[in-house]
Deep mutational scan, measured.
Amino acid sequence: TEDARKEAKKIIDNGGSPDEAAKFIKKYGLSEDQARELVKRAL
């Protein structure tokens, strides 16, 4: 979702790792793979 993508970008912009961002956005109901893909797109 757009919200999850924004959250991921915010985490990374604040110095978080892509892994942290992926873990965080899994709470939106995404699978591990979906979360990682979304983080990649957010970069």
Rank of each mutant, 00 (worst) to 15 (best):
T1M: 15
E2P: 08
E2H: 11
E2V: 09
D3K: 12
D3A: 14
A4G: 02
R5F: 15
R5V: 15
R5D: 06
R5S: 09
K6P: 02
K6C: 13
K6D: 06
E7D: 14
A8H: 01
A8E: 03
A8V: 14
K9T: 05
K9Y: 08
K10T: 09
K10L: 10
I11D: 02
I11K: 03
I11V: 05
I11N: 05
I12N: 03
I12E: 03
D13P: 04
D13F: 09
D13W: 09
N14Y: 07
N14P: 02
N14E: 11
N14W: 07
G16S: 06
G16E: 04
P18T: 08
P18H: 07
P18L: 14
P18G: 06
D19F: 11
E20S: 06
A21T: 05
A21V: 12
A21P: 01
A21E: 03
A21C: 15
A21M: 13
A22T: 10
A22K: 08
A22F: 13
A22P: 00
K23L: 12
K23D: 14
F24P: 01
F24L: 11
F24I: 13
F24Q: 12
I25M: 08
I25L: 14
I25W: 04
I25V: 08
K26R: 14
K26L: 15
K26N: 06
K27Q: 10
K27F: 03
K27W: 03
Y28Q: 00
G29S: 00
G29K: 02
G29W: 00
G29E: 02
L30F: 12
L30V: 05
L30E: 00
L30K: 00
S31G: 04
S31M: 04
S31Y: 00
S31P: 03
E32C: 00
E32L: 11
D33N: 07
D33W: 09
Q34V: 10
Q34K: 05
Q34I: 07
Q34M: 08
A35I: 13
A35S: 03
R36Q: 11
R36C: 15
R36F: 10
E37A: 08
L38Y: 02
L38I: 15
V39S: 01
V39Y: 03
V39M: 04
V39Q: 00
K40C: 13
K40Q: 14
K40Y: 14
K40I: 12
R41T: 13
R41K: 13
R41A: 15
A42N: 03
A42D: 04
A42H: 07
L43T: 07
L43E: 05
L43V: 10
